[in-house]
Amino acid sequence: MLQPPKNTKFNKMRKGRSKGSARKSAVVFGDFGMQSAGRSRLNARQIESARRAMTRYLKRDGKSYTRVFPDRPISKKPLEVRQGKGKGAVDHYAFNVKPGTIIFELAGVSEELAREAFRLAAAKLPFRVNFLKREMSHDESSSS
């Protein structure tokens, strides 16, 4: 399970509004990537469950990279508590996913294995995903 962030400037955050497109939108570390097609909030349990589904299918072959980290504190008030008396305590941590964000990357496996592993992991996530292949730049292709 992913641990909460070690230190944050403020222990509670406001919700904010999710708008715009993702910054982490290219496959950088691996050969294949899982890209979000939707907008949602991803908590540590969902990330871990998707990661486990992938690694279990791949039988620990290849290398997987997790490109997201739950760093936004989500607060929650206890059940049956009246309104007022301030904001609730931090319940869990989450990551705000925008369309185009790369969630996971895989290296050292075939495309068929990567597709199936991502399909199994996508079942654990609350949004649709796309399969991406790493685009070879002109410099990389000429050197090999």
Score class of each variant (00 low, 15 high):
residue 12 K to D: 03
residue 84 G to D: 04
residue 15 K to R: 13
residue 113 L to P: 00
residue 9 K to L: 12
residue 103 I to K: 06
residue 40 S to H: 07
residue 59 K to N: 08
residue 12 K to Y: 04
residue 14 R to T: 11
residue 112 E to K: 15
residue 71 D to L: 12
residue 72 R to S: 08
residue 12 K to V: 13
residue 2 L to K: 14
residue 60 R to F: 06
residue 38 G to R: 05
residue 36 S to L: 06
residue 56 R to D: 03
residue 126 P to W: 02
residue 61 D to W: 00
residue 39 R to T: 15
residue 96 N to K: 15
residue 38 G to H: 05
residue 31 D to S: 15
residue 26 A to F: 09
residue 53 A to M: 00
residue 88 G to D: 08
residue 5 P to G: 08
residue 132 L to C: 13
residue 112 E to T: 14
residue 34 M to C: 10
residue 128 R to L: 08
residue 65 Y to R: 07
residue 6 K to T: 13
residue 139 D to H: 15
residue 12 K to E: 05
residue 50 A to F: 00
residue 139 D to F: 07
residue 60 R to L: 06
residue 117 A to G: 06
residue 62 G to E: 06
residue 53 A to E: 02
residue 71 D to E: 13
residue 99 P to L: 01
residue 122 A to P: 01
residue 12 K to Q: 10
residue 122 A to T: 13
residue 123 A to T: 03
residue 68 V to D: 03
residue 124 K to H: 12
residue 90 V to I: 14
residue 74 I to R: 12
residue 119 R to N: 13
residue 40 S to Q: 04
residue 57 Y to N: 01
residue 140 E to R: 07
residue 116 E to F: 10
residue 24 K to L: 04
residue 52 R to G: 10
residue 74 I to W: 05
residue 75 S to P: 03
residue 109 V to H: 01
residue 111 E to K: 15
residue 53 A to V: 01
